[in-house]
């Protein structure tokens, strides 16, 4: 038992712990009378900073999403707790074939940290990496709102509720993700890395 508790605290979690934990999150939010959807917080942010002046899409009572901001703040603290006290840092044990593909595109030490150091550390920040991160973020924000939800709203909540629109959205996630992974990243990395 102690061994199990220790491994939960200090070792990376296997998929069969993480999936149920996400389902529990879904249940708790439903039980608290809310629908699970993280990207709704982005829309509420736009409303809170005065987006209602440029689009009626942001002209709504963003305070109804206050709970989502509190939830999001909790996830930030959860990230800190896991890094500081639960050894959730350093190397990620990805597949050898994944590492080889990344090395082939000019990435050094793939999997040595949670994020690629060449893209996400201050020392490597330049016009190329800043544009890379910014454009990627714009695509995520634009796409999530256009599709009416992100991974939590469509892939988790929507599929759990057997919504056909969510299945179409998830198919879209993969059309975009595979196009980026196989056709665009090799070109982009030849400029950025």
């Amino acid at each position: 038992m102690t061994e199990f508790i220790n491994s939960v605290i200090y070792e990376p979690w296997p998929w069969y712990l993480v999936g149920p934990a996400i389902a529990i999150t879904l249940f708790l939010l439903l039980y608290f009378g809310r629908e699970f959807g993280v990207s709704a917080s982005l829309r509420a942010t736009c409303a809170a900073i005065g987006g209602g002046k440029i689009s009626s899409f942001f002209d709504f009572d963003w305070k109804s999403q206050k709970w989502n901001f509190v939830f999001v703040f909790g996830t930030v603290v959860g990230g800190t707790v896991s890094s500081l006290f639960m050894n959730s840092k350093g190397a990620v044990d990805i597949a050898e074939s994944t590492k080889e593909a990344l090395i082939g595109m000019g990435m050094t030490n793939p999997g040595s940290d949670y994020l690629p150091t060449q893209l996400f550390t201050y020392e490597n920040l330049g016009i190329g990496t800043i544009l890379f991160l910014l454009i990627g973020g714009v695509l995520v924000g634009f796409g999530a709102r256009y599709a009416g939800g992100c991974t939590s709203g469509h892939a988790i909540s929507g599929l759990s509720n057997l919504q056909l629109p969510s299945l179409i959205a998830v198919i879209g996630f993969f059309i975009g993700g595979l196009t980026m992974t196989y056709f665009l990243l090799p070109v982009i990395f030849s400029w950025v890395l």
Binding site: S39, I135, G143, A147, A169, G176, T179
Partner: peptide, 18 residues
């Protein structure tokens, strides 16, 4: 859903984070 989802997927695979 298809077009919006595709935009989202392009970004997700780029920055590796939803």
């Amino acid at each position: 859903y298809l077009v919006g989802g595709t935009f989202f997927g392009l970004g997700w695979a780029m920055v590796g984070a939803c």
